[in-house]
Each structure stands twice: as C-alpha cells, then as structure tokens.
C-alpha cells in the first residue's frame, strides 16, 4: 500500500492522538488551557525581572524580546522531548496493532505545536502593551513558524528512533537542550556577548536563525534572508535524514520495546 493511501486511512488516528495529548495535559488542572498562556507569561516576568531590573539591561520592549525567544525555544524543547518518548510510551499499542509508527512522534510534535500557536496570543498582548505594534513585516512570521515545525519534526524523528535502542538518550538530550538554550540568545542581545571570535556559535545554530527572523517579523524589521535560507536548508536536511533513519529502523522497534 502506498504511503499516501495509508496516511489517508490513519488520518483520523493522527487527529485522535493530537487531541488526546492536549486533552490529557490539561484534564486535571483547574485552569485548563489557560495554563498554556499563563506559563510563558510567568517565565517572561521572571526573566524580565532578573535581566532588566536586577542586571539593568532592559529597554521597554525587552519582555517582548524575551518572550519571542522563549516561546520558540520551549516549543522546540518540549516537542523534541515528547517525540523522543513517543515510540517508547506507545510500546503497548505498537506490539499489538499495526499502525504506521511515525504517527506517534508526529502526533506528539503536532500537539505541542497547537499549544504553541495558542500561546502566541500572549505574545500579541504583551507586544501591544509594551508598544510593539504590527507592521507589514509581520507577514514574514509564517516562515519561522513553518521552519520551527520542520526542525522539531526532523529532530523528533531522529530522537524517537534513537530512544528505542538507547534509554539514556533522554538525559543526553536534556544536556544538549541546555547548551542550545544558552546559545539561542533568548534573554540577552547578541551584540552584548559577541567578541569577534565567538560569532560562529550564533551563525551555525539553526534554532537561533529561526528566532532571529521571528523577532524581525515581530519588531517590524526586514528579514535576514541568509539565516532564513540556512534554517530552511538545515530543517529540510534534518527532516529527510530523521525520516530516513526512522524508516530504516522501524521494523526493529518491536524487538527492543
């Protein structure tokens, strides 16, 4: 059966899995989906307090700067962590019923993406409150929004495959994410840390390349086409590689789960 035909048959399952992730996440919390917005708002407040009040680096729109970086990074971080565990957590089903296995990492990334899109409402509100108003450049926001999904999916496919065979990938990935977080310029401006020799850290970090253009769109600046191209190429290659590895290994999953 062709891939497209199979996907058509299990499209309903993808929807159900995404719905399940979101539903169960908020089922027992009193505030429900409000948490999606409250959580980034609270972290933004903490970060703004620390970096602008205590360290005195802030401008009026600094909270918007922090929030843009933080929202993208936490989607990437949560999405890849969820995808990493997706195949393992569904071991019971994988062993009993035939379902295209990529559904599991795909669904966990997509459910994170839905939550991420909802949380953008917070960004809109904070931006207006802090005097950052939309311009025509805002239309460019669709590019980083698509790129971050591609990058997360690609990483997720690769990680979920590796996690089947090696359980400690989960902890290694946690460390890698920490490193990534500090090189994404979420709560500092890069011109305050660049010394001339360490610029490559930001130049080659695909997640930072996405954040840059996301910020450009929000702050009404023209896109940086070089990072835009780099992030797209990186995401596409990673996605192809991740999918390839997943497909090559998926028949062995059942033997290791």
């Amino acid at each position: 059966m062709s891939v497209i035909k199979t996907f058509g048959k299990y499209r309903n399952l993808l929807g159900e899995l995404v719905k399940k992730d979101i539903k169960l996440k908020y089922r027992n919390s009193y505030l429900g989906v409000i948490w999606t917005m409250l959580e980034p708002l609270l972290t933004m407040l903490v970060l703004t307090l620390v970096f602008s009040e205590l360290l005195g680096k802030g401008t009026k729109d600094f909270p918007v700067y922090i929030l843009t970086g933080r929202l993208l990074f936490s989607f990437y971080s949560n999405g890849t962590k969820a995808a990493l565990k997706a195949v393992r957590n569904n071991a019971g089903m994988i062993k009993k019923v035939y379902v295209p296995k990529y559904m599991y990492p795909l669904a966990s990334v997509l459910s994170g993406y839905v939550i991420f899109l909802i949380s953008l409402v917070v960004l809109a509100v904070v931006a207006v409150v802090r005097g950052v108003y939309p311009t025509l450049q805002l239309f460019w926001i669709v590019v980083p929004l698509a790129q971050i999904l591609l990058l997360t999916l690609g990483s997720g496919m690769l990680l979920s495959t590796m996690a089947v065979f090696f359980r400690d990938i989960e902890y290694l990935w946690g460390v890698a994410l920490m490193l990534l977080m500090y090189t994404c310029a979420i709560f500092y401006k890069i011109d305050s840390v660049i010394t001339g020799t360490n610029g490559w850290i930001f130049k080659y970090n695909p997640l930072y390349a996405i954040i840059v253009n996301f910020r450009n769109a929000v702050f009404g600046q023209a896109p940086d086409f070089q990072s835009m191209f780099y992030a797209t190429a990186f995401g596409a290659v990673l996605m192809l590689f991740g999918t390839f590895v997943f497909y090559k290994q998926q028949d062995k999953f059942i033997l290791y789960l």
Binding site: Y10, L13, L17, K23, L24, G92, M93, V97
Partner: peptide, 20 residues
C-alpha cells in the same frame, strides 16, 4: 491493549477505533 488508561470508555472508542 490500545486503550489509554486516563481516557474514559467513550473517548477510547474513538481512539481505539481510529487505531483500527
């Protein structure tokens, strides 16, 4: 085997049905 433990029976009908 494909049931989600947290889900109710009704929700599992849709989930398990989708899986099949």
């Amino acid at each position: 085997a494909g049931f989600d433990q947290q889900y109710t029976g009704a929700e599992n009908i849709y989930l398990y049905g989708a899986m099949l």
